[in-house]
């Protein structure tokens, strides 16, 4: 994938920021409004894929030195790990807790362990989706060699 398209690249630079912001919004709002880990993760992944499409994969990877497979594994581990926190308190596996707290800047905010679980979900989705795309395109170059 080596497109050389100035318009696409300049548009991408702007849109990617918008998509990233939007996906963070979707992710954080998931508990009360449409959104959540899956959608947030997927739209982040879509943004990264757009970057890959617009720029060279190698270039993007230079700036994004993340192993997405490890990211996915980390996500699953976080999700499973939150399951055990409930067990420490004697509740069944995967019990989630929530509480309303007054935070300095945000005002009255709900803090829920479900958000941590959702973070795990989001990371797993991002990691898997991006590593699928990456391995297909990389496997591709691997085979052309």
């Amino acid at each position: 994938m080596k497109p050389n398209d100035v318009i696409l690249q300049s548009v991408t630079k702007v849109t990617v920021i918008i998509i990233f912001t939007f996906s963070v919004y979707l992710f954080l709002n998931g508990h009360h409004h449409p959104g959540g880990g899956f959608i947030g993760g997927l739209s982040t992944a879509a943004a990264i894929v757009l970057l890959f499409l617009a720029f060279d994969i190698e270039k993007v990877r230079e700036n994004f030195q993340i192993d997405f497979k490890k990211l996915a594994a980390l996500g699953v581990l976080i999700a499973i790990g939150t399951g055990f926190t409930g067990m420490l308190a004697g509740d069944p596996f995967l019990t989630q807790y929530f509480n309303d707290k007054n935070l300095p800047i945000f005002g009255k905010t709900e803090l829920a362990t479900a958000l941590i679980f959702d973070t795990g979900v989001a990371l797993a989705v991002i990691g898997t989706a991006v590593s699928i795309i990456l391995s297909i395109s990389e496997g591709d170059s691997l085979w052309k060699r």
């Binding site: 508990h31 409004h33 959104g35 959540g36 995967l94 479900a114 679980f117």
Partner: peptide, 26 residues
């Protein structure tokens, strides 16, 4: 503590399903 019921089902009521699902995804 969730107003989005679908999300509450996914992360809370049926958290087990979601956990296994992301494992499958991985």
């Amino acid at each position: 503590g969730a107003k989005n019921i679908v999300n509450a089902i996914l992360v809370d009521f049926r958290g087990f399903d979601t956990m296994l699902e992301i494992s499958v995804l991985c």
